[in-house]
Design a protein around this nucleic acid. Structure first.
Lengths: 247, 247
DNA sequence: GGCCCGGTTTGATCCAGATCAAGGCGTGGC
DNA sequence: GCCACGCCTTGATCTGGATCAAACCGGGCC
């Protein structure tokens, strides 16, 4: 039940100073000494889109950061119903100190590269580095807030609001504010549905409806979304303040 | 927008050693020195059932622990739809270090007593006490897991499964395993509905259905629930393993 | 070109849970 | 006792999203 390592994609160790997530990941506040300690315990590995990183209930022998690509956390009911419970983007942390069993499945959405830390060594570092532990606390609290926002979406939003919220979320990270905003979804309709607590058909219909209503435009095979007016889209998302998503 | 303090219910400072949540709260791992520091910055206050502790977007000038009673965290959509996003029980932590604005409303469900720490002083302690910060991290990660469990419930469970899950959850904390398990709900049907992403009518109907099917019995005014077979109830809750709730 | 294949869209129908609308039923006040 | 007020339950109806079932559409491969 151990995470099996695809042989492909192993990377040579890389200098932390040059790391693209150096200033946002769990190591963001580290001084040079701590960085050296982390460098000694780290290794890289890459998974292809669709590959399972750990099964629900499986053993995750490391903790680490997403360097590149994205991954999903999903939970299952016994009859096969699925709900995505987290979306990991670059700099997000994966794994829980003090527990090596994963309570949800972790899957690569696109090709994903992790910077992995040996669990035992990382836990030892955590015990005496306030920089690392306080950064991890901060990140965990951010995730908790995000999870609670998502609870509101799952429990009370309509299908249209859910889809609008999701699209606004991804458009927001679009390469700086060109107008129109443009972004290519890393997820298929099925994965979006899993994330939003909907079916694939409903997601498709709502995207069509938003397009018909002039709130978004599609391009190419339907994976690229354009938006001229993000504010108008945010209104469709139904939040009490349009600014909430920006937190 | 500051939390207004009801004059009633202020308590005299109390010895931490005798505190009912001493070994489960954020102070669980503290040594005597740290306990003294906490004791100096703490104060108690009690809210009556139904009172608002902080509004959504309001300022929470303290952080602290629930000593007695229970409180809810809720988020609103602008048209009034509500979703409970957290349920705080004794020993749970309230407030976020580093941010004094509450992203959700905090309300007393039953009469609730908080052990409050001055925010600035607590944050200072957090900076140099590994005991406190590591315990807080642990608690935050537990809450994150709970939030993700709830996302699965909100996104994918049926009304019957939701209600069964909720009842199993509260029965589980019932005063040790007498048979039948008995427990008096601290929440009304409306609050349960807010928690489960349902309407009050649906909650009522599902409770009736579970009773008709012999999975639970009611007593008195419908606030007291008896259960002879928790396992059978857990099956109705639909989790992939009956044990998940016990995490 | 023609075909297959995975992802997406669209249509028709169904049903779980929301909504609307009355009733019970226990408790407290007068 | 009697009434009023909060809850909770129950019934009738409606509807948003699920489900079932086809198309559609672009890309890669023979």
């Amino acid at each position: 039940m151990t995470a099996t390592a695809p042989i492909i994609g192993a990377l040579a160790s890389q200098n932390c100073q040059a790391c693209p997530i150096r200033h946002r990941a769990v190591c963001a506040k580290c001084d040079d000494d701590e960085l050296v300690r982390l460098e000694r315990m780290k290794s890289y590995r890459t998974w292809q889109a669709g590959e399972t990183i750990v099964m629900e209930g499986g053993t995750l022998p490391f903790v680490g950061s997403v360097v590149k690509g994205s991954a999903s956390l999903t939970r299952y009911l016994e009859d096969g119903r699925v709900q995505m419970v987290g979306l990991l983007m670059p700099s997000d942390f994966i794994g829980r100190p003090g527990r090596s069993t994963a309570p949800y499945e972790v899957t690569a959405i696109s090709e994903v590269t992790l910077c992995m830390f040996d669990r035992a060594q990382f836990e030892a570092l955590l015990k005496n580095s306030m920089q690392v532990s306080s950064r991890l606390l901060e990140m965990s609290l951010d995730e908790l807030d995000a999870a609670r926002d998502w609870m509101l979406l799952l429990g009370r939003k309509t299908a249209r609001e859910k889809v609008a919220t999701f699209l606004a979320l991804v458009l927001r990270r679009a390469p700086v504010s060109a107008s129109p905003l443009r972004c290519t979804l890393p997820l298929g309709r099925d994965t979006i549905a899993t994330y939003l607590g909907l079916t694939i058909e409903t997601v498709s219909r709502q995207i069509t409806a938003l397009r018909r209503d002039g709130l978004i435009r599609l391009e190419g095979n339907g994976r690229t979304i354009l938006c001229d007016d993000l504010t108008a889209l945010l209104v469709q998302a139904g939040e009490d303040e349009a600014g909430t998503l920006s937190r």
